[in-house]
Design a protein around this nucleic acid. Structure first.
Lengths: 207, 207
DNA sequence: CGGCGTCGTGAACGTTGTTCACGAGCGCAT
DNA sequence: ATGCGCTCGTGAACAACGTTCACGACGCCG
């Protein structure tokens, strides 16, 4: 079917345009009419490719998550020791946690509008599967060093703790970059994140 | 002037109605027309009391901040030791940090819609003074125990660290209560917050 | 009692996202 | 080649929103 191909072309063209708009002017600048004008299609055509604008935003967010995945790929490469952890290995695990958090900050600071769109977007119903899968990837990266620091935790407890560490880091980045609380430079913010995450790792480590 | 009094009456009536709506159905349910119908005034009358709906939301948020202030009043009462801190005093300081964080969680969980409105609202320009004043109150409550844990820090460094601790806690509460990441019960979330904040305090403490 | 000023009124405007009756374009059979 | 039918994009129309503004009612003072 030629038809399916055209639909797919429209889909990617729409995602491209939406991504450009969001990256340049933020999520609130995304208008259906502007979008149609930019990709050279009719207003209604958008709704033949996506059920609504939310779905389009979700597609853009998937790309952002993929970008972020590549951004923390090297940090994830850290080798995972086995057996009882030496003090040096514990230090290395804490360093990995810090590097992950700093990588998160750096990504958010480098792609502010794209990153904001991930969270500004108010989910109506349940999130799609692929969204959760992509999220899980990040959490797994956090769980690895946690396994070194806290081998006593069950898999479930560790997963929960990983989510909490992410949430704390997200709070630092989110309120730090938003001028809502106070605008901090990425430099200062990195210092704070290093301090906090390192303290967290130190305090969590089982001695 | 009888006139001024009527204006003030309208103001409080509007804030009352807006607060009820936000608390019951969330910020997105606040519509100018519904509001006018509820307080029994004309649509345009709203704009004689407030420049726009944002200002009205800000007024509701002020009430929320006052509510929160009362909620953490007792935690703030903790006495502040002087001179070099004993290990027991350091433990007490960490406990205070944990209690503050748990109080924050409890407030957010008890007033979910009101609390969300504080952050969902996108600030256009600079925030009003009273907003910053109210924020400062919370940060001072965090700085007190930090003074015990880290007497070596300068006033500026401590203020920065206090904001970072708040940000981390906010992240835990925000992503924990939102079903964005995964919906956690207040019970589970409290356990996570206690773990994380305690680890933070432990890791931060200068030995 | 009449003129004048003040202030709420609600119809109207500009922007949204979303829908749907129409018609253009294409393939196939006659 | 011509007519028929089906499919799918089109863009005018709709509903809901925040915000504005010309009008008219009401009250006060001369």
């Amino acid at each position: 079917m030629r038809n399916e191909e055209r639909r797919e072309r429209l889909r990617t063209a729409l995602i491209d345009a939406a991504e450009r708009t969001i990256a340049a002017h933020g999520l609130s600048a995304l208008k259906a009419r502007d979008l149609a004008k930019e990709v050279g299609c009719a207003l209604g055509a958008i709704y033949t490719a996506f059920p609504d604008l939310d779905a389009l935003i979700l597609a853009v967010n998937l790309r952002t998550l993929a970008l972020f995945d590549r951004a923390i790929a090297e940090v994830r490469l850290a080798p995972e020791p086995e057996g009882p952890a030496t003090p040096a290995e514990r230090e290395a695990a804490i360093d990995t946690l810090v590097r992950l958090a700093v990588a998160y900050l750096h990504f958010a600071a480098s792609n502010p509008a794209r990153w904001r769109a991930l969270f500004q977007h108010r989910m109506t119903g349940a999130l799609p599967d692929w969204y959760l899968v992509e999220q899980g990837r990040l959490f797994h990266a956090i769980e690895a060093p946690l396994r070194v620091l806290r081998p006593d935790l069950s898999e479930t407890e560790r997963a929960l703790l990983a989510r909490s560490l992410f949430s704390a880091t997200h709070g630092l980045v989110s309120l730090g970059l938003d001028e809502k609380l106070m605008a901090l430079s990425e430099r200062v913010l990195r210092g704070q994140i290093e301090t906090v995450v390192r303290a967290l790792g130190k305090g969590l480590a089982r001695e």
